[in-house]
Amino acid sequence: MTGIKLPDYLPAWMSDHVNTYLADGEAGHLWDATLGGGEGMLTTLLLTTKGRKSGKTLILPLIYRPSGDGGYCVIASKGGAPAHPAWFLNLQANQDIHLKVANDEFKAVAKIASGDERERLWTLMENYFAPYARYKAATDREIPVVVFYPA
């Protein structure tokens, strides 16, 4: 995965996590959630998108859980900020996305969950990473629940 740019705004611990993940998917797959206010070691994937403004290839780690139907569920929380995260806006503009899950790398498509599916997946993710409840309370926007499927 050459030519990938880590976003400039990433904190050092996140950049370190991405670099570890890129070098060895097994070593980077689990992330110490205490760094983000959670507990324990949580599964993460690497999402690669194209910047909707810059056109640059960008990569970001996201906490995930299997969705139960062959997909990978993530939350577009941005810590409860009033606006959606850049990665979510990027994938809305361009579905040319790539995932790395442990050492598996593949093209993917994204689906935004809604209704009962969204509620089920939100509960799954909130039970996995408790700070999502705080993020939800901090914003008026509906935080998107996204499921990635291998293309």
Score class of each variant (00 low, 15 high):
Lys5Ile: 13
Ala83Leu: 07
Arg120Asp: 04
Pro131Tyr: 11
Trp31Arg: 06
Ala137Ile: 00
Val146Gln: 06
Pro131Met: 13
Ile63Trp: 01
Gly40His: 00
Ile112Met: 10
Asn19Gln: 09
Phe106Glu: 04
Val74Asn: 03
Leu45Lys: 04
Ala138Leu: 10
Ala138Pro: 03
Glu126Phe: 10
Leu91Phe: 12
Ile63Phe: 03
Phe148Glu: 00
Gly36Tyr: 08
Leu91Asp: 01
Ser77Met: 13
Leu35Met: 08
Thr57Asp: 08
Leu121Trp: 04
Ala110Asp: 02
Met14Asn: 13
Leu62Ser: 12
Leu22Met: 05
Lys5Val: 13
Ile59Lys: 15
Pro144Ile: 15
Gly71His: 06
Asp16Val: 03
Asp116Ala: 15
Thr2Phe: 04
Leu42Arg: 14
Val145His: 00
Met14Gly: 03
Ala76Met: 08
Gly25Arg: 02
Gly68His: 15
Ala110Asn: 03
Pro144Asp: 08
Tyr72Lys: 07
Leu22Trp: 01
Thr123His: 04
Ser77Ala: 15
Lys136Trp: 11
Gln92His: 08
Trp87Tyr: 02
Thr123Asp: 15
Ile97Gly: 14
Ser77Val: 12
Thr57Cys: 01
Thr123Gly: 01
Ile63Arg: 04
Gly70His: 07
Ile4Arg: 15
Pro144Phe: 14
Gly80Asn: 06
Phe106Pro: 04
Leu22Arg: 12
Leu60Asn: 06
Lys78Phe: 11
Gly55Gln: 11
Gly25His: 08
Leu42Tyr: 08
Val74Trp: 09
Tyr64Leu: 05
Gly68Phe: 12
Ala83Gly: 00
Gly51Asp: 08
Gly71Asn: 14
Gln92Arg: 15
Leu124Glu: 02
Lys5Gln: 02
Gln92Lys: 14
Lys50Arg: 13
Ser54His: 05
Ala108Leu: 08
Pro131Thr: 03
